Simulated scan of single mutants.
Amino acid sequence: MEASTCTSFWGFFFCVSLTLTIIQLVCANSEGDALYTLRRTLSDPDNVLQSWDPTLVNPCTWFHVTCNQDNRVTRVDLGNSNLSGHLVPELGKLEHLQYLELYKNNIQGTIPSELGKLKNLISLDLYNNNITGTIPSSLGKLKNLVFLRLNDNRLTGPIPRELVKVTSLKVVDVSNNDLCGTIPITGPFERIPLDNFENNPRLEGPELLGLASYDTNCS
């Protein structure tokens, strides 16, 4: 009886461990697929993405990618890498991502609204690119976001009021774009210096209470 019970216990333990391992591998493969989708849209003249091999079990051995102990992607560091191309919606599948660093490249196109799914994101650094379109309101869902640097792009439209609710924000820089509307003054924006909004010719000064609707008329 005791031997049977023991065998049953270890059999159950093995099955649970195997299941967890398979789940981790599937998730890692999904994240690798997402990153490889990004790679395929980018021009990489300096071959900084040469190690991004989609045939590997997970992307944790790729250069410029950092993972946690569960082989989930937590950092993508591709700042100042002479890359051009577009961001992809698949980046929203990197559930554990904390740092997305793509500054000082030649990234074009828009910021995918799917980045609002990155609930663990701490830093979003897309500054010094050629990104167009608006700042997605979905970024207001990033409740752990501390650093939002979108300066020196070609962004248009208003500063989303959803960002006012991201109380973790310490740094917001949207200078040198073509934003319009007014500058928020509540929530984390109370402590953001006005220099971080400069050189947006159509952006008005800090909003007056009750005039936030002004932003809905700009594009």
Rank of each mutant, 00 (worst) to 15 (best):
M1N: 10
E2H: 07
T5D: 12
F9L: 13
G11Q: 12
F12Q: 09
V16D: 11
T19C: 14
L20F: 11
L20H: 10
T21Y: 15
Q24Y: 06
Q24W: 08
Q24T: 02
L25Q: 14
V26M: 14
V26I: 15
V26W: 15
V26P: 03
C27Y: 15
S30V: 03
E31V: 01
L35A: 03
L38T: 00
R39H: 05
R39Y: 04
R40W: 00
T41H: 10
L42I: 00
S43P: 06
P45M: 10
N47G: 08
Q50T: 10
D53S: 11
V57C: 14
P59E: 11
P59N: 09
W62Y: 09
F63W: 03
C67T: 01
N68H: 12
N68A: 05
Q69D: 11
Q69W: 09
N71T: 02
N71Y: 08
T74C: 06
R75D: 14
R75I: 07
V76C: 05
D77W: 11
D77A: 07
D77H: 05
L78R: 01
G79D: 07
L83K: 00
S84E: 10
G85A: 04
G85E: 12
G85H: 08
H86G: 02
L87Y: 08
V88Q: 08
V88E: 09
P89E: 07
K93M: 02
H96N: 05
L97C: 02
E101P: 00
Y103E: 09
T110H: 14
I111L: 05
P112E: 12
E114H: 02
N120R: 05
L121I: 02
I122N: 14
D125K: 06
L126R: 00
N128Y: 13
I131V: 09
T132E: 15
T132P: 12
G133A: 08
T134K: 15
L139N: 01
K141G: 00
L145D: 04
F147R: 04
L148C: 06
N153R: 04
N153K: 03
N153Y: 04
R154L: 12
T156S: 15
P158H: 09
P158R: 13
P158Q: 12
I159W: 11
P160V: 03
R161H: 06
R161G: 04
L163G: 01
V164A: 10
V164Q: 13
K165L: 12
V166I: 14
V172L: 15
V172R: 14
D173I: 13
S175W: 11
D178Q: 09
D178V: 07
L179Y: 02
C180N: 07
T182S: 15
I183G: 12
P184H: 13
I185Y: 11
F189M: 00
P193I: 03
L194E: 10
D195P: 01
N196A: 04
N196E: 08
E198D: 07
P201S: 12
L203C: 05
L203M: 08
P206S: 10
L209M: 10
L209T: 02
Y214G: 00
D215R: 09
T216D: 15
N217S: 14
C218S: 07
S219V: 04
S219T: 05
